[in-house]
């Protein structure tokens, strides 16, 4: 199992109030999945995605990657794991404004000292070709359209050869047509390279192409869905710790 979430809870302080963002969430995600975490605003889907992406920490429960418990690991270890295994695609693209498209894609690779400059450049060129932006390699983000920026962000997320790409509302800032293209691009990459994609979204188009869905409300998973043709077959929520992998609803 690539990712195993066991009874994860997340609370945080908002002034004097304690807000519960997630409660007792359990989820298994296998390699190669194309999974959408769906729910209304404030339901906890972004918090769940952040915890999976190791940029936020659960208040309770455990997170396992490749059966290794990463809960409570020091920031440096989590940073190393993110650098080697996790790609991010953000709603607001989050490209570094002073870098060109190719430099943005190359940026995460600078942490890989084993790669020569030539190897880095070759990989960047391949990725820009993959997202069809070779002609815009020298453009800075402010010289690119929203769709082009998001394609650069996808190339950047894929640069490290991640086990999983986390996309937080990747189509929210794009027009309908461009958003559709971006989703199809990610689906194509998922099918071609087997890269795991996890979306947090309330965009129905994401749900149209996802093969798994997790519906979340008020910090709790309310149902799991597995695509069967054009429809979803749903299963009731059950903590992963209560089940063995052979009976996993997501399999």
């Amino acid at each position: 199992m690539l990712i195993r979430i066991e009874s994860v809870g997340k609370t945080y302080q908002l002034g004097v109030q304690t807000v519960t963002a997630l409660r007792d969430v359990s989820l298994n995600i296998e390699e190669g999945a194309f999974i959408a975490i769906s729910g209304p605003s404030g339901s906890g889907k972004s918090t769940l995605l952040n915890i999976i992406g190791l940029i936020d920490t659960p208040t309770s429960g455990r997170l396992l990657i490749d059966d290794h418990d990463v809960t409570g690991r020091p920031p440096e270890v989590l940073a190393h794991l993110r650098a080697r295994a996790i790609g991010f695609v953000f709603q607001t693209f989050n490209l570094l404004p002073v870098l060109t498209a190719e430099e943005n894609v190359e940026f995460p690779l600078l942490q890989f000292r084993e790669l020569s400059t030539k190897q880095r450049r070759e990989r960047v060129a391949q990725l820009l070709d993959l997202v069809k932006l070779s002609d815009h390699a020298r453009h800075r983000p402010n010289q690119l359209s929203g769709g082009q920026r998001q394609r650069v962000a996808i190339a950047r997320a894929l640069a490290i050869g991640p086990r999983v790409v986390l996309a937080d509302e990747p189509t929210a800032n794009l027009d309908h047509r461009t958003g559709g293209r971006i989703l199809r691009l990610m689906r194509r990459i998922n099918r071609k390279y087997g890269t795991t994609f996890i979306f947090s979204t309330h965009d129905p188009r994401v749900l149209e192409i996802a093969d798994r869905r997790v519906d979340i409300e008020d910090g709790t998973i309310v149902r799991f869905g597995v695509r069967t043709g054009e429809t979803w077959s749903y299963a009731a929520e059950r903590p992963a710790s209560d089940r063995d992998d052979s009976r996993d609803d997501l399999k």
């Binding site: 992406g53 940073a79 650098a83 404004p97 995460p108 942490q111």
Partner: peptide
């Protein structure tokens, strides 16, 4: 802040 948050998310340590 967002820019540095991104840099950290991409795996760069503090």
């Amino acid at each position: 802040r967002g820019e540095f948050g991104t840099v950290r998310a991409l795996g760069y340590p503090p």
